[in-house]
């Protein structure tokens, strides 16, 4: 059994579940947030354009949380993961009348 990387859970936002066989959560293994996301889009390639832009960076409205913490205030995609960690994909919702 491989124990080098943590198994973590990623919560999938409702409109993206069509790309994960309707799974609400996906289990991946990864030592960091970046590795976990990489595994997620390798497993479900149609998710990739929704999460990443053409340069391969997370889209500006896509926030990743580990538990209650925004990875922007941790170590971004290099944030290390403990086994059992729960990642959430959280959109920044904004707009206006003009």
């Amino acid at each position: 059994m491989r124990t080098t990387t943590a198994t973590v859970t990623i919560r999938i936002p409702t409109p993206l579940r069509g790309f994960t066989n309707n799974q609400e959560t996906v289990e991946v293994s990864g030592a960091t947030v970046g590795e976990a996301l990489q595994q997620l889009v390798e497993q479900f390639p149609r998710l990739k354009p929704h999460l990443f832009n053409d340069e391969g960076r997370l889209r500006s409205f896509v926030n990743i949380y580990v538990g209650d913490e925004d990875i922007r205030y941790l170590q971004r995609e290099a944030t290390p993961l403990k086994p059992g960690a729960e990642l959430s994909i959280v959109p920044s919702v904004a707009g206006g009348g003009l």
């Binding site: 936002p13 993206l16 409205f61 959109p91 919702v93 904004a94 707009g95 206006g96 003009l98």
Partner: peptide
């Protein structure tokens, strides 16, 4: 949309998130 029509603005489109 205070004092603006109920249709998406350019800002709404620029800030849009996931289809669905």
């Amino acid at each position: 949309h205070p004092d603006h029509p109920a249709r998406p603005s350019a800002t709404d489109l620029a800030e849009a998130t996931f289809p669905g």
